[in-house]
């Protein structure tokens, strides 16, 4: 029962969801590209499948590949030890704009914190997994932080809450760090 047997079964369960199947790196693993909007249905199908019950979302990794945000769901079934890597790609309107994405917290509860982290550092709003408590929608970064740091187009801010990071120029004697600006 290799994971590749799961693909046909997945296609009947969620027609049109599986876009492509590609090998993942050198290790002989396979990664299954899935449509963004049907991720929740695919998740339910995989979780309920009798032979493959992938009930452990080991890791949720997000990367930016030439303007598209690719989410990789590393799945593993705790009894049988199979592993499967689901891939979803979403394209934000502009490099700095946040983007919407369906949340899989209902199927895999351990996805809560990785999704919150991705929402903070990559600007992906997960529908169904709001940031608890803080109204500013920031989970790791301080309230009022502008921009999404892990995006390639991220420009390091020169000041935060209008406190400049570097000393204003025009000083003659060196400061404590021996830097004359």
């Amino acid at each position: 029962m290799d994971t590749s047997d799961l693909i046909p079964r997945l296609e009947e369960a969620v027609p049109g969801a599986v876009l492509e199947v590609r090998p993942f790196g050198r290790g002989g693993e396979i990664s299954v590209w899935v449509e963004a909007k049907s991720i929740q249905k695919v998740a339910q199908a995989i979780r309920k499948d009798v032979d493959f019950s992938f009930d452990w979302l080991e890791n949720l990794s997000v990367m930016e590949v030439d303007k598209a945000l690719v989410l990789t769901y590393f799945l593993r079934s705790q009894e049988k030890g199979h592993t499967l890597y689901l891939r979803v790609s979403i394209v934000p309107d502009s490099p700095e704009a946040p983007v919407e994405m369906l949340s899989v917290v209902k199927t895999w509860p351990m996805a809560k914190l990785p999704e919150l982290e991705a929402s903070d550092l990559f600007g992906i709003r997960f529908v169904g997994n709001p940031v608890p408590g803080s109204s500013s929608g920031r989970f790791i970064l301080p309230r009022g932080w502008v921009g999404y740091p892990l995006r390639k187009s991220y420009v390091f801010p020169t000041e935060f809450l209008n406190i400049p990071h570097t000393r204003p120029t025009g000083h003659t004697e060196p400061d404590d760090y021996g830097v004359v600006t």
Binding site: F74, P109, L113, P114
Partner: peptide
């Protein structure tokens, strides 16, 4: 891109 799967995250949850 370097991303880490960290054992402490589920514990915090």
């Amino acid at each position: 891109r370097v991303q880490f799967r960290v054992p402490t995250l589920p514990l915090l949850q």
